[in-house]
Nucleic acid binder design. Structure first.
Lengths: 126, 126
DNA sequence: ATCAATAATAATAATCATTACTGATTTACA
DNA sequence: TGTAAATCAGTAATGATTATTATTATTGAT
């Protein structure tokens, strides 16, 4: 894995926000610094960084991948009003993973827990 | 919502398996009974049935939607070896939802919990 | 510092899943 | 039965992601 300015800028950008951006948002914002950057470069580096465990891919009910530069154990809440993704930490999930492993007799390596609903701001604006 | 043979057959087919099929699998299998059925019909009815709460859309790390004809509260385990989706019931998730709602001061309507790892069969075959 | 090997890039084309559109058919029900 | 509305099949369009290719940048060794 060779160094590249683009990859570093991508990682820096991703770690500068807690908004869990998508590939095209990252692309648009990287263009400020690299006007010629290619969307393919963004996707490729997101894949590389996710594979190496430096960032995290988030799966929501939208058909779009979102990314998180922070890989500490936490979960997400997706507002169906504004589609924003919020961080939230819940404890006791290891217990659930253990429970699943036992029930299925499988090797559970990880899990994804996403909450859905209406965020504070959206419920106030209605 | 008007009755249609296609929608009924789709629902019956989806409820005949626990394999959590994708739209194209359902399409291919419905063609046995309806050789002219359209993929659009499958997608439309999946959306209609999911909206009305009769079936459930499953989100995994694959960029493909999967569907579940059984809507009782349960969770899923995705094997990264064979990509199969297994059902698993975990208790105590309501507590996690409550915890998230309190932490975010949000209205949590539901959650999705997906486990990842290697299933029993795959770990035996290696 | 220069050079060759190779990884990364920009640009673009291709793919894949899903959604939208259209005109014909089917269902519900007055 | 007749009519309005929902659903259909067929097909085109969209949107996100991935693959291709020729060029450029990084690396480690001379």
């Amino acid at each position: 894995m060779k160094y590249s300015k683009q990859r570093e800028a991508l990682l820096t950008l991703l770690r500068s926000t807690h908004s869990h951006p998508s590939a095209d948002w990252l692309y648009e914002n990287l263009r400020k610094e690299f006007p010629n950057i290619s969307l393919g470069t963004v996707y490729r580096n997101l894949a590389v960084l996710a594979d190496s465990g430096e960032i995290m891919k988030i799966q929501t009910s939208s058909n779009k991948e979102h990314f998180d530069g922070f890989i500490d154990k936490h979960h997400h809440f997706v507002c169906r009003g504004c589609d924003k993704i919020f961080d939230v930490s819940i404890d006791g999930i290891e217990k659930a993973e253990k429970q699943a492993a036992e029930k299925l007799d499988a090797d559970v390596e990880g899990s994804s827990l996403v909450f859905y609903g209406i965020c504070k701001e959206c419920s106030q604006n209605n």
